[in-house]
Write a protein that binds this DNA or RNA. Structure first.
Length: 197
DNA sequence: AGCCCGATGTCCT
DNA sequence: GGACATCGGGCTA
């Protein structure tokens, strides 16, 4: 497990973590031992108490958002629109409620053959494809035997594209903050367009 | 290629 | 009771 990302990876500036997660491998070991994994191709940063789009805006701390206030490297999984889950990883130092939403994966292990390259092209689809649910909230990705992230591909800065945020309405100007990152021209990006497409 | 809408449960006011 | 860090289908063009 020497490729697993250590706590120090997550305990950094949230935007850096969001960019550096591109190319890393999300792994879920299921109860039956089957491995599901994929490479991260799209992320989005949520900048805590100062970010109008974040669940933790204004320091809001509830049962739902509790994981965001926890140690860096925790998962934060929430339920949305009555039928989807979304997976985040908690960043920055404990008590600072920042996180990175994992928005899309390139499927690698455990997917049906022939694999749909867009099976995890979006935060809701990703959790459905990876069998990630509310049970996976607040897991420690640094030590968990169920869910973790590994180093995989190294991504050059020029391969990273930035885009506006998604699905957060017109709250303030936060929509326009370029906090969404993706691998240029990758087929597994979510359907939310980047300006450079 | 784009807009609109329904599905469907939970959270917060 | 309204909004929601979504998705896919059906519509218009």
């Amino acid at each position: 497990m020497k490729r697993r990302l250590p706590k120090e990876f997550y305990a950094r500036d949230t935007i850096e973590v969001a960019r550096d997660l591109l190319g890393c491998r999300l792994v879920h070991r299921m109860p039956d031992g089957r491995r599901l994994s994929g490479r991260i191709v799209e992320t989005e940063a949520y900048l805590g108490a100062d970010d109008p789009a974040a669940h933790s805006f204004g320091g809001r701390r509830t049962a739902r958002t509790e994981a965001m206030f926890g140690k860096p490297g925790l998962s934060y999984v929430y339920f949305i629109y009555g039928m989807y889950f979304c997976l985040n990883v908690v960043t920055a130092e404990e008590g600072i409620p920042e996180a990175v939403l994992i928005r899309a994966l390139d499927p690698v292990e455990g997917f049906r053959q022939p694999t749909d390259p867009r099976a995890a092209a979006g935060p809701g689809k990703l959790c459905r494809a990876m069998h990630i649910t509310r049970e996976h909230n607040a897991l420690d990705l640094v030590t968990s035997q169920t869910l973790w992230i590994e180093r995989d591909q190294i991504i050059a800065a020029h391969e990273i594209i930035e885009g506006p945020r998604v699905g957060i309405g017109d709250r303030h100007d936060a929509v326009h903050w370029p906090l969404r990152y993706g691998l240029a021209a990758h087929p597994a990006l979510s359907s939310a367009k980047f300006p450079t497409d």
